[in-house]
Amino acid sequence: MTDRKTELAENLANVEERIARACAAAGRRREEVTLIVVTKTYPASDVRILSGLGVRHVAENRDQDAAPKAAACADLPLKWHFVGQLQTNKVRSVVGYADVVQSIDRARLVTALSKEAVRAGREVGCLVQVALDADATGRGERGGVAPAGIEELADLVAGSPGLRLDGLMTVAPLTGEYAGREQAAFGRLMDLSTDLRRAHPAATMVSAGMSADLEQAVAAGATHVRVGTAVLGVRPRLG
């Protein structure tokens, strides 16, 4: 445990230094960027260590892993983010622990989340996931909606009981015009965020950037970065 704590502390310090440098280079204050540590595939014991090291935001992408982990860490001062593609049959469980769902990509999901949030007496923050590589169907390789679909989905979230529209999320595309152009992709997301805030001024959250491209996200103006591997190490392969 001590060795793991040392390892996580060193990795966390390195990531903090990267974020601080990126903020300085962009003329931003360090407190403008929130680090979310993506703890998927790692045990609750790691989440406990991270909490002790000052981490306050963690993210998961599979409910079957996240639900028991969140329950085991319910005593910790953590904010849980759900970042994976969410099936409607998992919504009741996710609403039980997630403070923010970052992967809103369809109206049916909004309806299901609203119903369960009201039933649970909770307010769940929502980010519309933007697919910058959206194809003719309006969806991207990693989920999300095309930029043209943001307004309608955002309005639906904002008007749904139990839900709070917090902003936008994206994953740097692997294909299409933004492939290999992470900063341009994140810059596009910032433009879309500016458009969104005209109608929804409180939707200020912009979640972008991961272990490999957090600097580009900070340079573009992201408010939250989602970092897993750089903090926790290379993930074991799931069988």
Rank of each mutant, 00 (worst) to 15 (best):
L109R: 08
N89L: 07
D191M: 06
A25M: 06
A179C: 07
G187E: 07
D3F: 04
I19V: 07
A230M: 03
V128C: 09
E10K: 14
R48Y: 04
R122Y: 01
G84Q: 06
N89K: 14
V95R: 01
A74E: 14
L192S: 05
N11G: 15
V227W: 02
P161C: 08
I36F: 12
K115A: 15
V206C: 13
N14Q: 15
K90Q: 06
E16F: 07
F186L: 10
A179I: 07
L113G: 03
S193I: 00
V227P: 01
R108L: 10
K5C: 10
V55A: 10
V33Q: 00
E60P: 01
A13I: 03
M210S: 02
E123Y: 01
R198T: 14
D166T: 08
A219Y: 06
R106H: 12
A185M: 08
E17T: 15
E215H: 01
A185N: 09
H81E: 12
G209T: 08
L232T: 04
A98K: 02
R139N: 15
V145Q: 05
I36T: 15
V38R: 03
V130R: 06
L153F: 07
L165F: 10
Y178D: 10
G125Y: 11
P77Y: 08
G143K: 00
L192D: 03
A179K: 11
R56D: 02
L189M: 14
F82N: 11
T170H: 06
T137N: 13
A22G: 02
R108C: 07
A154C: 13
T88V: 14
V124S: 06
L174I: 09
H81L: 09
